[in-house]
Design a protein around this nucleic acid. Sequence first.
RNA 1: CCGCCCUUAGCUCAGACUGGUAGAGCAGUCGACUGUAGAUCGACUUGCCCCCCGUUCAAAUCGGGGAGGGCGGACCA
Length: 343
Amino acid sequence: MNTADRLDLLTRYTEEVVTEDELEELLDGEPTAYIGYAPTGEMHIGHFTTIRKLADFQRAGVDVTVLIADLHAHLDSEKSPWDLLDARSEYYEESIRAMLDSAGGDPESIDFVRGMDFQLDEEYTMEMYRMAAETTVSRAQRAGSEVVRESESPNLGGLIYSLMQNLDVKALDADIAYGGIDQRGIYMLGREILPDHGGEAPVCLFAPLLSGLSGGKMSASDATSKINLTDDPEQVEEKIDGAYCPQGEVEDNGVLEYVRFLIFPILEEREETFVVERPEEYGGDLAFEDYDDLEATYVEGELHPQDLKNAAAGYVDEAIAPIRERLTDRPELLADAYPENYE
RNA sequence: CCGCCCUUAGCUCAGACUGGUAGAGCAGUCGACUGUAGAUCGACUUGCCCCCCGUUCAAAUCGGGGAGGGCGGACCA
């Protein structure tokens, strides 16, 4: 595979690349990439979009490390209780493996690492203290503002959070820091300070964040705004049917975003088209080769939201089915990780 | 170590002075209207009133103790 093709694989479906020139330069060598997940709330369909890219990394010959950031999960306002970190880490790892598997990646050749396995090392800790001494409170706050829980009385942990995440890049020896666009603030701080702490400014790749189904951002705490990996077909249909989906409008349209960032990448891989089954009275079935085609038709008003929803629900369900199966096969994973939800 | 303030619905808070078995807004649920959702209109739901003890016929409310959170002071040889 030539450099242009690899670059294309790496950057497709991304929100931003910092910077594309630096990324291209990296491809002369054998770059490595990393992404971190803090095992907090239950994983949902939004995670799927970031995980799919891991498959792209692999196709492009970039080694991937997945960090299960257990310490971070507690550091951010104790989102995960200390006693549940192990159980949630295990659940996250299994879910990520399942998602990657169904996205056409190879979980076996991914390096899974737990945060606490190296974040307590003396060298790491020492460097963290030095960063803490050099970073102002407001700078740290700004860096993590999109990631760390906001509050009138923020915890110290939320400030250390960003420093550590950047040290992770160095500790894991990653050339590419990958994550959702919400991680931007943290890594921009990292590009600034990591070189002063024995590391290198990482090249950053950011995935888009999907809108929630109720309009606005997807919220982990709003059940109706997101599809869970374990939702059954009826729940998927209900949630999508109830989604905010203004006719002809693209902005804040979660359904359209699901179709674009979740479904079409899968169809593209399989070289299939997006089929909308539609009653004769509304014009009969439709098939779309690519997303732009579908969006154009939608904007023109030739594709009704209800028909779009019906089709999308079917595809979304198909996408999560294999993951749902693996998780329901091992019910103890979720039960141990979220005892209050699964008794 | 000392002082002051806060803790009531999923969220933001009112009610406390003057005890009588709890309210508003937002959120949520359900209808109406749209071939979806939203908006709009109509209806509805939601509570260990932080915990314990006491006073009282009766405590969210008064008294005592405790827990959690916030703010300030003191200490700075």
